[in-house]
Design a protein around this nucleic acid. Structure first.
Length: 921
RNA sequence: GCCCUGGUGGUGAAAUCGGUAGACACGCAGGACUUAAAAUCCUGUAGCCGUUGAGGCUGUGCGGGUUCAAGUCCCGCCCGGGGUACCA
């Protein structure tokens, strides 16, 4: 019988579906184990070959854990709100839900085709009102909470109101926005509106003004991704910064705990490090500089208060509120010009261009608090408005960016820490003794920092402060396709919608196009937005990450109507034991999800503060993107080889329109309206595209789907091949070279059971020691490799095992039975089929994982005792295939070495014929 | 720019704790079987020199360093990838 993978795959996928083989049962009495994949955004391009890399790996682990006797929760769902669906709706006029649901059907079919052992009854979709009801509910909890620094957790807003009523705001230690203090009687005297406005300074969900990328020509707000070189990616229109009222979540209140929680997790150190850097805790001081001619002081934050005597100029962010006030008349035009130039750049562009030093002088001077000398105040875009105070004291001798700035504008450099050579470069290290620094002279940097803060505090100039780079999370999007806010404004004050009115369902709109005013398309729905009592709804929607910040909880109890998750279910599963996903989520999603889990824990909704115990980052399967080059401000495209003659903008094109780097011009013109009249500068009569290896994404039009590969080689081969490609954590470009080898392996494995001529080969005969040795060595290796999540080496070990058994023509029943269980996590379809052919009625998923028997393993090498100086004894491990003469030679050589080391007993010795290669004393 | 990460044969890679670098697989070359092809099996396959049962030298992005021993640790570079707060 031949290995007919198509029939086998279909048969077993149907079997698993109808028998609900992988349905999770909380009452099984087995220990729980929760294995989670980061759920996909269902884009129109379908699941690409990069998604399954992680899904297959976690599926192998889930199947392995089931064999090991765990009750495994292994669910899948869809992160369904987002820009691509909205863009589709704008382009076609269809509802984004149509696009999303069609994409989901495609994804589900593709996932099932790979034979993943999900419990499909627990599928969730973030755009489902039954799901986002609870996203809205969590938002309401955030709105009705404040962060009490005293108890160090979030509490109900009522406890805050109680304190206001009793004693005003003076003694409250809260994470709050800046606001004036008030007494209990002042609170009582406030109007309802004034009280609500005051509470917004404390709520964990609050409103504030924030800058957005505004494109006047498109009449819409753009994401940073949609802005390139200061113009919109689509159309190339100018983009500026504009202030808009936005919702924020007060994640900064959790900064310290989000850092501390990292210690309790089994996370890769690099991801933990990225999160720590993202939160960016820095200890320093806030201090005030007086400004000549103004009463209001200029506050700065610095991590190096010790270098205060080296401050030779000040730098404000171009957006700093005091810039306009302090700028002198003769500098006003230069400052204005610089501000406009900075407004056109994104933060990322501003930081990326630090080599190009730029700035402008305001004409104003600050007074040095200790030396009383005047120091000039500049603005520059390397100072960011929303970090620290948006202003710095520049110490060019000890900060490289300040140094570059000082050199460029010829500002003084004052050395205050000895140890470097400031004529060459700044000396940034936090080590050395202070010089030229008055009362700090002679102190070590660490001492000087403490002393400087003490002095600053005693003179009332400022105070020691811990600053975080983390900013409060912007939670508003001026889009249609997202969760509506459960918020209604009365007299411009936000109130939450009563819980029994949830969900606030996303209404249908006439047009998904931007309103032109920068509001969400929902704002155009006046019937929906304006309520009979004169109040109005919030018309922004929540960001993409709202629904993905808690989905792992919903899988525990996906049909619950009363709560996001029941107490019983939540306490059974507690945390995700093993979370697998791309490292591109290391800061965004993983941080927001931890924040929500922490918050829900504070408010008693969940019983543990830890969302994900163990994290594993998969690398990405990269795609090969094709690039065309548009000559700036034209609709003419120049072929790759000629692009250096022009100033061009790079634009990604769909790889399906490109063959061997040659662009299909007609398809390109049909692709987008704006390209219909495109012109081309060709080389050799063809348009040659540039190529780029990068993340496979709908955005880059470089997606390759697994469908063809599965149709051709079967899904076990696809699964094993993806695992065989290399370590899961490593990124690599997709290629199908080498999949043949996995196909050959599966046929060879099949042929251990079947013979073309004689049929079923498996015999109930006793295995030889040699065969047992091969099997048990493989069991041990696979066990170790799966536990350390090295699945590519599992595949290699299985190949070696099958090669050896097939060379021995071993078709012994007890060997093959155990081998089937070993292979079943990786290649479940073929394993089920052969398992059934062996006469088993239950699915192989119910079979226990075999244990390696040490008795079969020890003979691979043997110990040889050596005596040294008649006293010490060492056991050396020698390979089996050494001759006795060689052994004698090695032992003599070893004795020589040991004498030379002074007679110490070696802990470990490895010998190969001819030389000693390892000797650990 | 900043943070994280990777760089090993023609290719994907292995080397788990500092100890024989290149397992396993692809590809390629030669051979067996076959009228032929496919499939299958066998042999070879880092480079250079040598040999034809002879071994030696070099070699893990580049330049240094530590060590009896470095792909692995340290310092300085170069290049690719991810993130950089409205892609998810």
């Amino acid at each position: 019988m031949e290995y007919q993978f198509r029939d086998i795959d279909r048969k077993w996928q149907q079997y698993w579906d109808t028998h609900e083989t992988y349905k999770t049962d909380e009452s099984s009495g087995k220990p729980p184990y929760y294995i989670l994949d980061m759920f996909p955004y269902p884009s129109g391009a379908g699941l690409h070959v990069g998604h399954p890399l992680g899904y297959i790996a976690s599926d192998v682990f889930a199947r392995y854990k089931r064999h090991k006797g765990f009750e495994v929760l292994h669910p899948m769902g869809y992160d369904a709100f987002g820009l691509p669906a909205e863009q589709y709706a704008i382009d076609t006029g269809n509802h984004p839900a149509k696009f999303t649901d069609e994409s989901i059907i495609r994804y589900r079919n593709q996932l099932k085709m790979i034979g993943l052992s999900y419990d499909w009854s627990r599928e969730v979709k973030t755009s489902d009102p039954e799901y986002y009801k609870w996203t809205q509910w969590i938002f309401i909890q955030l709105f009705h909470s404040w962060y009490n620094k005293e108890s160090d957790k979030a509490e109900a807003i009522e406890t805050l109101i109680g304190q206001f009523e009793a004693s005003g705001s003076r003694h409250i230690h809260a994470h709050a926005s800046p606001h004036p203090e008030f007494t209990a009687s002042e609170w009582a005297a406030m109007s309802e509106e004034a009280q609500q406005e005051m509470l917004l300074h404390y709520r964990l969900a609050y409103i504030a003004d924030s800058e957005v990328n505004w494109c006047e020509a498109l009449g819409t707000v753009l994401s940073n991704d949609e802005v390139k070189d200061g113009v919109s990616e689509r159309g190339g229109y100018p983009v500026i910064k504009r202030k808009m009222q936005q919702w924020f979540l007060r994640i900064t209140a959790y900064a310290e705990r989000l850092i501390n929680d990292l210690a309790e997790k089994d996370w890769p150190e690099n991801t933990a490090e990225m999160q720590r850097n993202w939160i960016g805790k820095s200890v320093g001081a806030e201090l005030n500089f007086a400004i000549q001619g103004f009463a209001e002081p200029l506050a700065v934050f610095t991590t190096r208060p010790d270098t205060i005597f080296g401050a030779s100029f000040m730098v404000l962010a171009p957006e700093h509120p005091m810039v306009e006030m302090i700028t002198t008349a003769d500098q006003a035009s230069a400052i204005k010009e610089y501000q406009e130039q900075a407004a056109r750049k994104s933060d990322r562009e501003r930081m990326a261009e630090t080599k190009k030093v730029s700035g402008a002088f305001t004409g104003a001077y600050a007074i040095h608090p200790f030396t009383k000398t005047p120091i000039p105040i500049w603005i520059a875009d390397y100072v960011l408005a929303d970090y620290g105070k948006g202003a710095i004291m520049a110490v060019p001798a000890h900060d490289s960016r300040d140094y570059a700035f000082a050199k460029h504008f010829n500002l003084p450099v004052i050395e205050v820490v000895a140890g470097g050579d400031i004529s060459e470069a700044s000396y940034d290290a936090k080590a050395g003794r202070l010089i030229n620094s008055g009362f700090l002279d002679g102190l070590e940097v660490k001492e000087a920092i403490k002393r400087a803060i003490a002095e600053i505090e005693s003179q009332g100039l400022g105070f020691g402060k811990i600053n975080y780079r983390l900013r409060d999370a912007n939670f508003s999007r001026q889009r249609y396709w997202g969760e509506p806010f459960p918020i209604v404004y009365k007299n411009n004050i936000p109130y939450t919608v009563p819980e029994d009115q949830l969900p606030v369902v996303l209404p249908d709109v006439q047009s998904y196009k931007p309103t032109g005013s920068g509001e969400s398309p929902l704002a155009a729905l006046t019937d929906w937005a304006n309520l009979p009592d004169g109040s109005r709804r919030e018309t922004n929607t929540m960001p993409g990450w709202a629904g993905s910040s808690w989905y792992f909880l919903r899988y525990m109890d996906p049909q619950n109507q009363e709560a996001p998750v029941s107490k019983e279910r939540e306490q059974y599963w507690k945390s995700v034991d093993f979370y697998l996903g791309g490292s591109e989520h290391a800061t965004g999603h993983l941080l927001y999800a931890r924040f929500w889990q922490r918050f829900l824990y504070d408010r008693g909704v969940v019983s543990t503060p830890i969302a994900f115990k163990k994290l594993f980052n998969q690398g990405m399967i990269l795609g090969r993107s094709s690039i065309v080059y548009r000559i700036k401000d034209t609709n003419t495209f120049v072929s790759s080889g000629l692009k250096s003659d022009y100033e061009v903008t790079e634009i990604h094109v769909d790889v399906n329109m490109v063959e061997n780097d040659v662009l299909d011009l007609e398809r390109f013109k049909r692709w987008r309206e704006e390209y219909a009249s495109a012109e081309f500068i060709l080389e050799g009569g063809q348009y040659i595209c540039g190529a780029l290896v990068e993340k496979m994404s709908k955005r880059w039009y470089n997606v390759v789907t697994p469908d063809d590969v599965i149709a051709r080689y079967g899904c076990d081969a696809f699964r094993m091949y993806e695992m065989f490609l290399g370590p899961i954590e490593q990124s690599k470009p997709w290629s199908t070279e080498g999949i043949e080898g996995v196909g050959r392996f599966l046929r060879k494995f099949w042929n251990l059971f079947h013979d073309h001529k004689t049929g079923w080969k498996v015999r109930n005969e006793a295995a030889t020691p040699e065969e047992l040795k091969i099997l048990h060595r493989t069991i041990k290796k696979l066990n170790e490799d799966i536990e350390r999540f090295s699945i590519n080496t599992c595949v290699s070990s299985l190949m070696i095992c099958v090669n050896e058994l097939s060379a021995l023509n071993c078709s012994k029943q007890d060997i093959l039975k155990q081998l089937l269980v070993l292979i079943s996590p990786l290649a479940p379809h073929i394993a089920e089929e052969l398992w059934q052919q062996m006469g088993h009625e239950e699915s192989i998923a119910r079979e226990a994982y075999p244990q390696a028997n040490e008795a079969y393993l020890v003979e691979s090498s043997f110990s040889y005792p050596v005596s040294i100086n008649g006293k010490h004894r060492a056991n050396i491990v020698l390979p089996l295939d050494m001759s006795s003469a060689e052994i004698q030679e090695q032992v003599l050589a070893l004795e020589e070495v040991i004498k030379w080391t002074g007679g110490a007993t070696p802990k470990k010795v490895i010998i190969v014929p001819g030389k000693i290669v390892n000797l650990v004393i």
